[in-house]
Simulated assay, not measured.
Amino acid sequence: MCESDIKKMLASVDVAIDGPRPWDIQVHNDKLYGRVLRFANLGLGEAYMEGWWDCKALDQFFCKVLRGGLERRFRFTLPVLLELVSYLFRNLQSPDRAHMVAVHHYDFGNDVFEAMLDTSMQYSCAFWQGVDTLEAAQRQKMDMICRKLLLRPGMRVLDIGCGWGGLGRYMAREYGVSVTGVTVSSAQAQYARDHSKGLDVRWLLQDYRSLTGTYDRLVSVGMFEHVGHKNYAVFMDKARSLLARDGLFLLHTIGSNEPHHSVDPWIEKYIFKNGILPSISLLGKCAEGRFVMEDWHNFGADYDKTLVCWANNFIRGRKEGRFQCSELQSRMFLYYLLSCAGAFRARDLQLWQLVLSPGGVAGGYARP
């Protein structure tokens, strides 16, 4: 494969080199083609960060590339194979490595995330049905979670991977429940503590595997992507041990259309260290024998709009001086947000909410 082959491949999905349309790419360094051939998306992403190429609409570019299946042509480059070997033979999400994603990404700086996210600091897919602002869509998502969990005042709720505490605060304030949240990010834990005055909440800085106690409801939003396939059974066993016999567990996770044992090398290196996405079969297998599947809801198309909002907020926040970052870091964040938006738009990625119960809801479960 050579430069001309890459140009033909892009042309097959209606993308031109140095073309006039927003999704066409502008190449500033001809070494880009060799870098992509050798390192696939790792090379493509690093070249973008370094200014070797540009695109006015990265989300549209990636949507076209993924819908056309072009990424499959570069699946077995050396970096991808090395990443696969690591995931197959090592537990990259072991307890002593669990903090790595926090240090690498979530502790990047609360000022960045305050500028990028809504006021509740929700770093997960919003639910856009019938609303048109990020603030309203995230509030609607939180309320949908509460209604799916059939929350009642006085219940004890455990939030595994609580982030900056926005969902826990909402549950405690709006539904009168007692919330315990756990995170491996010191920056997130401190933010949650600083913004929870007067609420029945507590925040723990620890790994989920060390949790004890019994809770009426469990919720985990955007954390399962960091668990790793070698730990799925451990995670589900721990969740089952923490949940009351008549409890409910809502699991909110990005999902893949087919099983993978490694993650995109660029995402792994620059964004979510040691992360991996579950598939339908892997999720089903780890739930079998532990839970009854009460509900499975896919609203992955909503993540496209959420990510585009975050990208626009990031651009605006940097322009207004709400945070400081280098040009390379700025391009890294935008590549991450908009490439993921394109992946959800192409339906290459999904967003699932599962409702699980230990022994089945008497009379059946009806999604509120």
Rank of each mutant, 00 (worst) to 15 (best):
F249N: 07
L204S: 05
F249Q: 09
L218E: 13
L205W: 14
E258T: 14
Y215G: 02
G228H: 04
I254F: 07
L251K: 09
F249P: 08
G228Q: 01
L248K: 06
A239E: 01
N257K: 09
E258V: 13
R202N: 00
S262G: 07
R245L: 12
K197F: 11
S241E: 05
Q206C: 14
E225Y: 15
F224C: 07
E258I: 09
G247F: 14
A192S: 06
G198W: 01
K230G: 03
G213V: 07
I254V: 14
H261F: 11
D237M: 08
M223L: 14
R209S: 04
W203S: 00
G228R: 03
G255F: 02
L250W: 03
L218H: 14
A239I: 13
L242Y: 02
D216W: 01
D194H: 01
V201R: 04
G228Y: 01
Y232T: 04
S256P: 14
M236V: 10
R240T: 02
V201E: 02
T253A: 12
R193E: 10
D264L: 03
I254R: 10
K230E: 04
M236E: 00
M236P: 00
Y215S: 03
R245K: 15
L243K: 08
F224D: 09
G222W: 07
E225S: 07
A233S: 14
L199W: 00
F235D: 08
L251S: 09
G247D: 10
D237F: 06
D207H: 07
H260Y: 05
H252P: 12
V219Y: 06
R209K: 12
K197H: 11
N231A: 03
D194T: 00
H261C: 11
N257L: 11
V201P: 01
G198L: 03
V263T: 15
V219D: 11
D264N: 06
G228P: 02
K230P: 03
L204F: 12
H195D: 02
V201Y: 01
K230N: 02
L242K: 07
K238L: 04
A244V: 00
L205Q: 15
V219P: 09
N257A: 08
A239F: 03
T214A: 13
S256N: 15
V227P: 05
E225F: 13
L242I: 06
F224P: 08
Y208V: 09
L243N: 05
N231L: 04
M236R: 02
K197R: 13
D246G: 12
